[in-house]
Amino acid sequence: MARIAVKIVPEHADGTPCTHAVAPSGKPRDPHSGCTGRRRYQVVCSACGPVGAHGLRVLAEPAQSAHRDHHKKAPAATR
Rank of each mutant, 00 (worst) to 15 (best):
L56R: 14
A53T: 03
I8D: 00
G55K: 13
A21L: 13
A2E: 03
H67M: 01
M1R: 07
K27D: 15
E11N: 13
Q42E: 10
E61P: 01
S46I: 02
H20G: 02
D14Q: 08
P10A: 11
A23N: 15
K73V: 05
H67N: 00
V22M: 04
L59M: 10
Y41V: 06
D14L: 06
S65R: 12
P50H: 03
D14N: 15
M1A: 08
P50E: 07
G37V: 08
P28N: 05
T36C: 08
V44D: 00
H12W: 09
S65T: 06
A66Q: 08
H12M: 11
R40W: 12
V51Q: 05
R29F: 04
E11P: 05
T19H: 13
S33Q: 11
P28Y: 13
A21D: 15
E61R: 04
L56D: 08
P31V: 01
R3I: 04
H54P: 08
D69H: 04
K7M: 05
A47Y: 00
T36H: 14
C48G: 05
T36Y: 01
K7H: 03
P17A: 12
H67L: 01
I4P: 00
K73C: 05
S25N: 15
A63T: 09
A13I: 12
G34M: 04
A53V: 07
A76I: 07
C35A: 05
T36M: 03
H12L: 15
H71I: 00
H12Y: 12
C18I: 04
D30T: 14
G49T: 07
D69Y: 04
A21T: 10
V51I: 15
R40S: 15
K73R: 14
A23L: 14
H70C: 02
A53Y: 04
Q64K: 10
V6L: 02
H12I: 06
A74Y: 02
G55I: 08
R3V: 00
R40F: 09
S65Y: 06
S25T: 15
R39G: 14
A66S: 01
D69E: 07
S65K: 15
G55S: 13
L56A: 14
C48F: 06
S65F: 09
G52P: 02
P75K: 05
H54R: 09
V6Y: 02
P75D: 03
H32C: 03
T36K: 13
G26A: 08
H54W: 07
S25K: 07
V44F: 03
I8E: 03
